[in-house]
């Protein structure tokens, strides 16, 4: 079982992001996803910066995946996507890396450039027919949509094409929804186009609570996440049994190293899984996502 680090979901200052990935280079993680997937206005790191980060991670022995923006709206979004996902003549910097396609525009570009790609978690791969088609287009790995159940995964695994790896979101706040609207800017009565980059002030997103104070969601710019941490550490034996190849951990402001090490230890059988009472795993069991089922 390999461990991957998902793309960074929050907006951290430039130096902090560089420092984070310098540390990631020394973590016991096999695969690292880099790139901005949430908001095209976030530019502390430009594409060339991400490619530098990617090159350094690879020197450290990591498999690096360039993850694409989830919501593509404008021509400038497409321009950036083309550089990442297709073959721009003379631009060899991106070619050496696998691309994670997070919407179908990226699939089209990667497939027509004959580049292998990862079918990301927002491609809605729920059925075997869709997975087979993506394999035919060049997908070499796919990520189960976070809302999918174990039963759906098993159905997909049974018909899994050859040479296709399966990855699953196994730890972190769940990315639940994407919008064109920025909910962080909205909290400050700002429009997205003049958002003052408020996300920089919320390196772990903003907590959204119900009117009786119950933590419910997390606002992260245009992305809405769960308040609870999705945690499949306790389900690792099931994941192994189901033939999952990669578990994905979502980067956190603090404690990412400990998390990766804990997953590594549980995979190796040298530690027992620990699951907090306010974690959740309902999706895996076909329940509301916020529930916690003890296996």
């Amino acid at each position: 079982m390999k461990i991957s680090l998902g793309p960074p979901l929050y907006y951290w200052p430039r130096q902090q992001m560089f420092d984070f990935y310098a540390e990631v280079a020394t973590m016991p993680v096999d695969i690292v996803h880099v790139g901005e997937t949430v908001c095209s206005r976030r530019h502390e790191l430009r594409l060339d910066d991400w490619l530098d980060v990617a090159a350094r991670l690879r020197e450290a022995g990591k498999e690096v995946v360039l993850s694409t923006l989830t919501l593509i709206e404008s021509e400038s979004d497409l321009k950036a996507l083309r550089r990442l996902a297709s073959a721009v003549p003379g631009d060899t910097a991106t070619h050496n890396f696998l691309v994670e396609a997070n919407e179908m525009g990226a699939v089209r570009l990667a497939a027509s450039a004959k580049r292998p790609f990862v079918a990301g978690p927002t491609l809605n791969v729920f059925g075997p027919a869709t997975l087979r088609l993506l394999a035919g287009m060049g997908a070499t790995r796919w990520v189960l949509p976070p809302e999918a159940t174990r039963e759906m995964l098993q159905g997909l695994q049974a018909g899994r094409p050859d040479n296709m790896e399966t990855e699953i979101f196994a730890h972190g706040r769940l990315p639940l929804a994407y919008s064109a609207r920025c909910f962080t800017a909205r909290r400050f009565n700002l429009q997205k186009d003049s958002c003052e980059f408020k996300c920089l002030d919320f390196p772990e997103g903003m907590a959204l609570k119900t009117r009786e104070g119950e933590a419910f969601l997390t606002l992260n710019g245009t992305q809405t996440q769960s308040a609870k941490t999705y945690n499949l550490l306790g389900e690792l034996p099931q994941l192994v049994a189901d033939g999952v190849d990669v578990v994905r951990i979502s980067p956190e402001l603090a404690g990412t190293r400990e998390l990766v090490e804990r997953f590594r230890d549980v995979i190796d059988g040298s530690a027992a899984p620990r699951v907090a009472d306010d974690d959740c795993n309902g999706f895996w069991y076909g329940k509301p996502g916020l529930e916690l089922i003890r296996p």
Binding site: L71, N124, P145, E147, L174, A177, Y178, P288, G289, L290
Partner: peptide, 12 residues
């Protein structure tokens, strides 16, 4: 939210 990319109801 972008239709097809919203699991808020599934979560709740």
């Amino acid at each position: 939210m972008v239709e097809g990319r919203c699991a808020l109801s599934a979560y709740a």
